[in-house]
């Protein structure tokens, strides 16, 4: 049963932030509503005010500027999927957008909504973590940039303050020669919550030595995570079957997934190792990328 609430329509982001400051913590923003409406119906959220962010132009736009790609928090997953900039500078994010829920949901769901919901299975998080993304958290008092890695702190918990909104996401334009990988493993070929998802980004120099490695995983920890020990083990070394296997093993060792309805802990752990190895191997071989969706 839906709780009762007021619906406020700010005319600008400044107005929205003012309203947030006024009513927080009893105020919840809505953009697409694809998470919030379900949460309201299920009684998981009972705000006094639902704040409409849809249509605020300050939250739109995908730009390349100052060596970063910047995406407004209100950008829909469908817009991410169709963006040339995302395709060019964040192909793993594009892959994730392509297997995010269903096309109907993608038309409405916002990037900020996915991140703020902070499900351990959030599809956009692993690619963004692998891109060293930052999120801009704004309030009436000002705004701050926080690395996405520091943004998530627990199951559905972030550092977002009750009066703040996630207004933008940015990541540095990847260096030439960066190879990306993404795979979402689910129990069905479409419209499935991930059992494990993995995103990799490996920057190699002309000699094939790994300059920077990022490995990010979803659904294997209380929050989307990077396996930093594995990343460090790759740094400064050429990608080889040996270094890849080591990174994959370290990644699996770094996570303590839970067993739930969808999968057992042992399976998730094993899949971390398998998927990380595969994605890195593809990066090494420059073979056609594993498609972002599950299936042979």
């Amino acid at each position: 049963m839906m709780p009762e609430f007021e619906f406020w329509r700010p005319q600008s982001l400044a107005g929205a932030l003012r309203m947030m400051a006024e009513v927080a913590p009893q105020i919840h923003p809505i953009s697409g509503g694809t998470n919030l409406v379900v949460d309201l119906r299920g009684g998981r959220q009972r705000p006094r005010v639902v704040l409409n962010l849809e249509g605020l132009s300050e939250l739109k736009g995908i730009r390349r500027e100052d060596g970063h790609v910047s995406v407004g928090g209100g950008i829909s997953i469908a817009e991410l999927l169709g963006s040339e900039l995302v395709y060019a500078y964040a192909p793993s994010l594009r892959d994730a957008a392509g297997v995010f829920a269903s096309p109907l949901v993608r038309n409405r769901a916002s990037l900020a909504g996915n991140l703020v919901d902070a499900s351990p299975a959030a599809d956009t998080a692993p690619p963004l973590l692998a891109l060293d993304a930052e999120v801009q958290l704004a309030s009436q008092a000002g705004s701050r940039w926080v690395s996405l890695d520091e943004f998530f702190v627990g199951v559905r918990k972030t550092v977002l303050r009750p009066e703040e909104l996630l207004v933008a996401v940015r990541w540095p334009v990847p260096a030439d020669g960066t190879r990306f990988g993404y795979y979402k493993l689910g129990l069905r070929k479409a419209d499935a919550i991930s059992v494990v998802s993995a995103a990799t980004a490996v920057e190699m120099d002309e000699k094939g030595v790994c300059v920077r490695a990022r490995i990010a995983l979803g659904s294997v920890a209380p929050r989307p995570v990077r396996t930093k020990a594995a990343e460090a083990a790759l740094q400064g070394k050429p990608l080889s079957e040996e270094t890849i296997r080591q990174a994959a093993r370290l990644s699996a060792e770094a996570v303590q997934p839970i067993s739930d309805l969808r999968a057992s802990a042992w399976y998730r752990k094993q899949m971390v190792e398998t998927l990380v190895a595969r994605l890195l191997r593809q990066s090494m071989e420059s073979t056609p990328r594993m498609e972002g969706k599950n299936g042979a």
């Binding site: 069905r188 070929k189 479409a190 419209d191 919550i193 969808r262 969706k293 299936g295």
Partner: peptide, 11 residues
């Protein structure tokens, strides 16, 4: 229907 998975058009 997000836990009980019947085939989609992609399955």
């Amino acid at each position: 229907l997000s836990e009980y998975l019947i085939p989609t058009s992609c399955d």
